[in-house]
Each structure stands twice: as structure tokens, then as C-alpha cells.
Nucleic acid binder design. Sequence first.
DNA 1: CCCCCTTTTGACCATAACTGACATTTTTCA
DNA 2: TGAAAAATGTCAGTTATGGTCAAAAGGGGG
Lengths: 160, 160
Amino acid sequence: MYSLCDTIERYIMRLIENSPDQVVVIQRGKLASEFDCAPSQINYVLATRFSVFRGFIVESRRGGSGYVRIRKIPIDRIEPIVAYLEEYERQLKESDVEDLLSWLERENFITHREGQLMKAAMIKALEKIDDLGIPPGAERNQLRSRILKEMLLQILSWGK
Amino acid sequence: MYSLCDTIERYIMRLIENSPDQVVVIQRGKLASEFDCAPSQINYVLATRFSVFRGFIVESRRGGSGYVRIRKIPIDRIEPIVAYLEEYERQLKESDVEDLLSWLERENFITHREGQLMKAAMIKALEKIDDLGIPPGAERNQLRSRILKEMLLQILSWGK
DNA sequence: CCCCCTTTTGACCATAACTGACATTTTTCA
DNA sequence: TGAAAAATGTCAGTTATGGTCAAAAGGGGG
């Protein structure tokens, strides 16, 4: 029961993993016609599956011999994430958390179970707290960030 | 005489028991039209017959190729956790959290690292949120409870 | 017959996937 | 040099799902 989106995601993921430098260069139009879909579908996959929070950098160039380069970000330190968090705090959505966690898990900073616990604290727990006077939006995102920050610092203290 | 609700329950139950991993993935709309009922009827069945307290975890995704995944969890010695959950819904001090965590760890429900993560989310993070307009005291304790509850439910889903 | 609890439904909401028209950038070559 | 061609980007709109909640319907005991 995979969507086209999932299929393309796995295809690109495989290309990256089979490459020596964790980089792959594709052409949007070609890929789209291979999968027989709208070119913008590729952008959708890139935006939803290869975001920074999932640990990827996407660069591209238009025009003749244009390309899209997808690169996996090597992380060996978590501090930059914590630093980034402090600036980005107000915009930390639930999906950002999900993406970040799956990245940390992929990189073996945390186990699957640890990821699930973190998700419970930052997503499920904050879903229905209207009655506590913490409205959805910026305020809740900030709270989420604080929780994430402390957990990341904890992970940091474990080393790797 | 069986109600529709019971019929759907038995149907899903059978699917789960016939599956190797005690998991089944369905589509709400499809199932509803098979049984010729309102889609929300499926939600009712899930809420009343496949709750965590009955030993099931339900996850879902909306949108194109959406799904509902129902998983049976092995229940073993989870009663104390559930009891704790209900008892401490209202007021939960930091020391209560510490006590519970050490108990969970002693009983091997969680690892030491998992305990540290939980502590980071429930204690450290909540110590530094004065600027977010969530006053210390009852309100913060309730927030702590919500976070604990979701994490406990997660732990519960792992079984033991 | 009435009351209460469970079941069932329907209207309205939220979200993921997908598409197409239009915009922008870069190269090519007459 | 500049117009055409070749790429990618954006964004709003459509389709396909599932979620929520309150209200109606059903059913069993007093």
C-alpha cells in the first residue's frame, strides 16, 4: 500500500545509499517521466522526505543541463542542532520533531524506543493541553522546543 | 444478537489473529463500505474495542493512501503502570517522577538512558519555562502529568 | 413507559498526495 | 545579443483519506 511518493522516496534513498559519498544527482524531468508523474511531484517528495530535519540538503540548478543534487548531511555532533533550535524555536512544528527524531535514529544517536518516548513527550502529550491554558501555535511550539532541547542535551552527554 | 459494532470487532480481531505479527492495516473507508456503515462507525469500534487499555495500539495516516494500523500488544504486568496513570493524573511533583522512574528502571520496563530522557523532558525542561507563561505549581504539575502519561502509554505498548 | 447506556449516523474538519498552470533561471545558437 | 529552448521552482487547487463531535436511534431493565 505504498503511495507514489513513498516509492520515489525509496528509489532516491537507495541511490544515495549506494553512492560512495552519500550524494546523488538527478534530473527532475527525467525522474518524473520514469515514474510517469507530474514533475512537481518530485518537488513534493523532496520537500516532504528530504528536508533538513530529515538530514538532507537539496541543491539544484535550473536551465539547460539543470540538476537536483540530494546530499545526506553527516552529523557527528548534536550541538549545532541545539544552537539552531534556539533561533528556530517558534517554528518547531510537530512534523519537524518527527523528522529530526527519525534522523537521530538513523544515525544511531538514539534507539527506536528512545525515539518513541521522545515523540510521546513532544507530540502526543502536547496535542491536547488546551485546558491547561497553553494554546496551539507559537507558545506550544516553544514549549516543544524546550523539551527537545533538554532531551538533546541529555543525549549529548552520552556521547556516541 | 450481535450488533454491527460486535461484528466489526470480531472481523478485525480475526484479521489480527491470522496475521503473523499481530498487526493489521486497514482502510477506514473501505471497511466502512464493506460493512455498509458510516466511516465514523469504524472509529467507534476502534475507540471502544481496540483501546490501549484493551491491549491494542492504533496508528493512522490521513490523506492519499491513508491507512489505519491496529496492533495487538503483549500485556504483562502493566497493571501497576495503568494504576499509576489514573491515580496521578492531577498532581505530580518532581519527586514523584523520580520515584516512578527509578521503579520503572528497577523493574526493567525502561533502560537507564530512557529514564534520563524522561527526566529531561519532565524535570529539566519544565524548570526553565517561566518565560512561557506557565506558572510553577499546579499547572506545571498537570503538564508534567500529561507528558508522563503519554510516555507511560508508550512504554506500555512495548510490553515487557 | 421511561431512563440510561450503547450504538450509529452525518455534518464538518484536518491532512497527505498529486497535478497543472505559470514563473524563473540558464544555456544554446542563429 | 537576444530569442528560443531547456530545466527547475512555486503555489493554489483537487482528490483521497482519516478524525471529531454532537445528535439521533436503539435496546434493556425498572
